[in-house]
Simulated assay, not measured.
Amino acid sequence: MREILREVGMIARALDSISNIEFKEIELTKGQYLYLVRIYENPGIIQEKLAEMIKVDRTTAARAIQKLELQGFIEKQDDETNKKIKRLFTTEKGNQAYPFLKREDEHSNAVALAGFSADETETLYRLLQRVRQNVEVDWDFVKKGNKRTY
């Protein structure tokens, strides 16, 4: 069997490394851009949903959110009906950073998919979605404290 997940991992690490270097100019550190983009695109999202969306544990998400808040990229607001719930929103600083992050994403996609036809791109997208959905089953299982059987 081909080592597909190794390839996916190398791609992800390379793009993450590039982003971490380029995003220093807007004062974003390792991985923070993932959270900022998702909050911008999902205003009012709660921390638990954001962690699930990015596929990280709640503690990791809480640290990243706290840093973004301290840096002034995002803010927490009380939910209108349940004061225990904090909703996440980008600030003006976060809103100004988003176009830069979006341009980088579009450029990285264009570079990664250079030479692919529209049909190949769509097929790759659908196949990767299926891979993600398969992995999510194990992710949910392990996240709940279970152990996989190999």
Score class of each variant (00 low, 15 high):
132 R>D: 09
23 F>V: 04
120 E>S: 10
131 V>A: 14
38 R>D: 09
116 F>W: 07
150 Y>H: 10
72 G>E: 03
102 K>N: 08
19 S>R: 12
136 E>R: 13
102 K>S: 07
112 A>R: 11
106 E>R: 08
62 A>Q: 10
118 A>D: 15
117 S>T: 14
119 D>A: 13
31 G>H: 05
20 N>E: 12
46 I>L: 04
135 V>A: 15
142 V>W: 03
98 Y>L: 07
125 Y>K: 11
52 E>L: 10
70 L>R: 09
128 L>E: 09
140 D>C: 05
85 I>W: 00
42 N>C: 03
26 I>H: 02
131 V>G: 00
16 D>G: 14
45 I>G: 05
51 A>L: 09
5 L>Y: 15
90 T>C: 13
96 Q>R: 15
138 D>I: 06
148 R>T: 09
79 D>M: 08
28 L>C: 08
124 L>Y: 08
54 I>W: 07
43 P>C: 00
35 Y>N: 04
145 G>H: 05
13 R>D: 11
30 K>D: 11
14 A>V: 10
81 T>M: 14
57 D>N: 15
128 L>P: 04
42 N>D: 04
32 Q>E: 15
99 P>F: 06
34 L>D: 04
16 D>P: 02
105 D>Y: 15
23 F>W: 01
86 K>Y: 05
28 L>T: 01
36 L>D: 02
105 D>M: 12
37 V>R: 11
39 I>G: 04
6 R>K: 12
120 E>Q: 15
133 Q>M: 06
44 G>K: 05
3 E>H: 07
6 R>Q: 09
118 A>F: 09
49 K>T: 10
142 V>S: 01
16 D>N: 12
47 Q>A: 15
17 S>G: 13
83 K>M: 13
5 L>Q: 09
55 K>P: 04
28 L>V: 02
50 L>K: 06
110 A>Y: 06
138 D>F: 15
148 R>A: 07
21 I>A: 09
32 Q>N: 01
140 D>Y: 00
69 E>V: 06
121 T>H: 00
20 N>G: 02
150 Y>T: 15
140 D>E: 10
12 A>Y: 03
14 A>H: 11
80 E>P: 00
38 R>E: 13
37 V>N: 05
14 A>G: 05
54 I>T: 07
141 F>W: 08
42 N>L: 06
117 S>K: 05
80 E>H: 07
97 A>Y: 03
10 M>N: 13
88 L>Y: 00
118 A>N: 12
65 I>N: 00
35 Y>E: 13
47 Q>R: 08
123 T>W: 00
79 D>L: 08
128 L>G: 11
10 M>T: 09
32 Q>A: 03
34 L>W: 04
140 D>W: 01
140 D>H: 03
83 K>C: 02
68 L>A: 03
136 E>L: 14
12 A>Q: 08
82 N>F: 09
